[in-house]
Computed example of a mutant assay.
Amino acid sequence: MTINTQQNRKKLVILISGRGSNMLALLKANITNKWPAEICCVISNNLNAEGIKSAQSLGINTKIINHLDYNSREEFDEALLKEIDKSNPDYIILAGFMRILTETFVKYYYGRLINIHPSLLPLFKGLNTHERVLNSGLCFHGCTVHFVTPLLDDGPIIAQGIVPVYLDDTIDTLSNRVLQIEHITLVNTVEWLIYDYIQLNGNIVKIKNKKHKLFIME
């Protein structure tokens, strides 16, 4: 495996499973902010992922690797790994990628594999986070961008975004609010990665020239 060493232009691959709103936020930010970055490919495991069409409309290379075509997680991950490595990316962004990746896959890309999760980890790992937050009675919710480890929704936290929970919130209103802060948090995190602001030391992430790594929506 050869890792891209160009310091002035980062290569990214984005993995999605659905509508790809976080992916689209990254694609637009790359254009608007003129990042020194190339989004080489958007890959989905879902034949019907809406985000694939969105990426294609912006001229991004896309690929579908349907997990249903494989007999095991290991076989699927091997095919996914081979496709990703064609782009030789600096970072792989899991932007709503709804697959649990094998330990072999995660270790292969450790330090380059980034996930966004719709909760303030370590709270509410797994699915149905918005419903669980509402049922908990908490007054706040949010999202976490983190380096991926073999443990589910685990790994060194890079940044978090926080939103209030209102008394009249439903799952839909809360999820829409969290999605807005997801876009902000993920775009800023990827920008930090592109400009080499992020330092990973063990389980601790430090950001150069930043006093905090929290984004708050009132």
Results as ranks from 00 to 15, higher is better:
Met1Thr: 15
Met1Asp: 08
Thr2Ala: 07
Thr2Gly: 10
Asn4Ile: 08
Asn8His: 13
Lys10Ser: 15
Leu12Tyr: 04
Leu15Ala: 09
Leu15Arg: 06
Ile16Cys: 06
Ile16Ser: 03
Ser17Phe: 13
Ser21Thr: 15
Ser21Leu: 09
Leu24Thr: 14
Ala25Gln: 06
Leu26Ala: 09
Leu26Cys: 13
Lys28Pro: 01
Asn30Pro: 00
Asn33Trp: 02
Asn33Arg: 11
Asn33Val: 00
Trp35Ser: 04
Trp35Gln: 08
Ala37Pro: 04
Glu38Ala: 07
Cys41Ile: 00
Val42Asn: 08
Val42Asp: 09
Val42Trp: 04
Ile43Asn: 02
Ser44Gln: 04
Asn46His: 14
Asn46Trp: 05
Asn48Gly: 13
Lys53Ile: 01
Lys53Asp: 09
Gln56His: 03
Gln56Ser: 12
Gln56Met: 11
Ser57Ile: 01
Ser57Gly: 07
Asn61Lys: 13
Thr62Ala: 11
Lys63Met: 08
Asn66Asp: 15
Asn66Arg: 02
Asn66Ile: 11
Asn66Trp: 09
Asp69Val: 05
Glu75Thr: 10
Asp77Pro: 08
Glu78Cys: 12
Glu78Asn: 13
Ala79Leu: 06
Leu80Asp: 03
Leu80Arg: 03
Leu80Ser: 02
Lys82Gln: 14
Ile84Gly: 05
Asn88Met: 13
Pro89Arg: 06
Ile92Leu: 05
Ile92Gly: 00
Leu94Phe: 10
Gly96Pro: 08
Phe97Met: 13
Met98Gly: 06
Ile100Leu: 15
Thr102Leu: 10
Thr102Gly: 15
Phe105Asn: 00
Phe105Met: 09
Val106Glu: 01
Lys107Trp: 05
Tyr108His: 14
Tyr108Phe: 09
Tyr109Thr: 14
Arg112Lys: 12
Asn115Ala: 12
Ile116Met: 02
His117Phe: 04
Ser119His: 10
Leu121Trp: 05
Leu121Lys: 11
Pro122Gly: 10
Leu123Trp: 12
Leu123Thr: 09
Lys125Val: 06
His130Ser: 13
Leu134Val: 12
Leu134Asn: 10
Ser136Ile: 05
Gly137Arg: 07
Leu138Ala: 12
Leu138Gln: 03
His141Ser: 15
Gly142Asn: 12
Cys143Val: 15
Val145Cys: 11
Val145Tyr: 00
Val145Asn: 00
His146Phe: 01
His146Leu: 01
Phe147Lys: 00
Phe147Gln: 02
Thr149Asp: 03
Leu152Tyr: 09
Asp154Thr: 02
Gly155Pro: 04
Pro156His: 02
Ile158Ala: 03
Gln160Tyr: 02
Asp169Glu: 10
Thr170Trp: 01
Ile171Pro: 01
Asp172Leu: 08
Thr173Ile: 02
Asn176Val: 14
Arg177Cys: 14
Val178Phe: 12
Leu179Gly: 09
Glu182Thr: 04
His183Asn: 07
His183Trp: 05
His183Glu: 06
Leu186Gly: 04
Asn188Met: 03
Thr189Asp: 00
Thr189Met: 03
Val190Ser: 04
Val190Arg: 03
Glu191Ile: 02
Trp192Cys: 10
Leu193Lys: 07
Ile194Ala: 02
Asp196Ser: 14
Ile198Gln: 12
Ile198Ala: 13
Gln199Ser: 08
Leu200Met: 06
Gly202Ala: 01
Ile204Leu: 07
Ile204Glu: 11
Ile204His: 05
Val205Asp: 08
Val205Met: 05
Ile207Gly: 11
Ile207Pro: 12
Lys210Gln: 15
Lys210Trp: 08
Lys211Leu: 14
Lys211Tyr: 08
Lys211His: 11
His212Gln: 10
Lys213Arg: 06
Phe215Ala: 01
Glu218Gly: 11
